[in-house]
Amino acid sequence: MDTNIWRPILYLIGFMAFAGINAAYLGWCERKGAGRIQRRTGPMEVGFQGLLQPLADGLKLMSKQLLVPDGVDSILFRVAPILAMIPALTSMAVIPFAGNVQARAVELSVLLIFALASIGMMAVLLGGWASGNKYSLISAARSVSQNLAYEIPMLVTVITIVMLTGSMNLEEIAAAQQGGFWNWNIFPVASHSLAQAIIMPVSFIIFFICSVAETNRAPFDMAEAESELIAGHMTEYGSMGFGLFMMGEYLNMVVGACLITILFLGGWDGPLGLSGGIWWFLVKIYLLLFTVIWVRWTYPRTQIYKLLNLSWKILIPFSLVNLLLTAAFIKVF
């Protein structure tokens, strides 16, 4: 009985630490990565190679006054940053990092994560609305339409995976892909048919694009769009309100990367049949995160209507076709 109580608590502490470190050091990685891409060094002053920079930034943000401007809806204004952070943290609890490394095994963990991700979108909406700033309001409206548009292809793609695996439990989905990359859902030539293997990369690309859009990352950072909307929903925030939004954003990226890893890249499975483990999981999510950073610093931003068109006119039809084909293949082969 005791172990049953302590296990989630210990894991939660571990994941909180993991999430906190990730949120802080992804910021550092992003700045360093951007520095490399832009032929400069990035942060160098605080600590070796600027390694203590996130700490200094955190201290600075925490020591600042939590300013609530006149004319804002003060309750919603305060709630929004917390709403940005909490769902991302909570999602961490159900993510299986390795065979048995999971805070809480939930049977419908896929659904839970998507439900929580939708709450994350509410943070942007509430923050934008409560700020009483027209730019923030436009940002909120953009963010809602964008999230609405991109959750559909994402969920349809997930249904494809669920159909292939026959489970909505992330751990089982990952466990079904063990034994080398030919079993992974990105190219399941061994575990499923060849026809299935050919359409799955398309699903992977759809899912990846959607997760970048869902986490409001460039080139889909319509909500933030600093050259149009200044900082969108974060315009009026300072201090840790801003800090929580930023941490929420990075955590959402981590959750997104974890989800892609589990759904498509075999979770903790080692490629080429190498023995699996948590390190493979970490390698995969950080590779994905690096790709996201890389894309951000290379491409200019799209425009909101083109972004919505991309989802409604290309991604949703393609994901639906993929779903239908998968259903057919499962029946046929």
């Binding site: 951007a34 891409i37 832009q38 460039a218 950072d221 600093e226 050259s227 491409y299 200019p300 931003r301």
Partner: peptide
């Protein structure tokens, strides 16, 4: 247009 890197190039 939201592309930061060209600035530094």
């Amino acid at each position: 247009l939201g592309g930061f890197s060209p600035l530094l190039y």
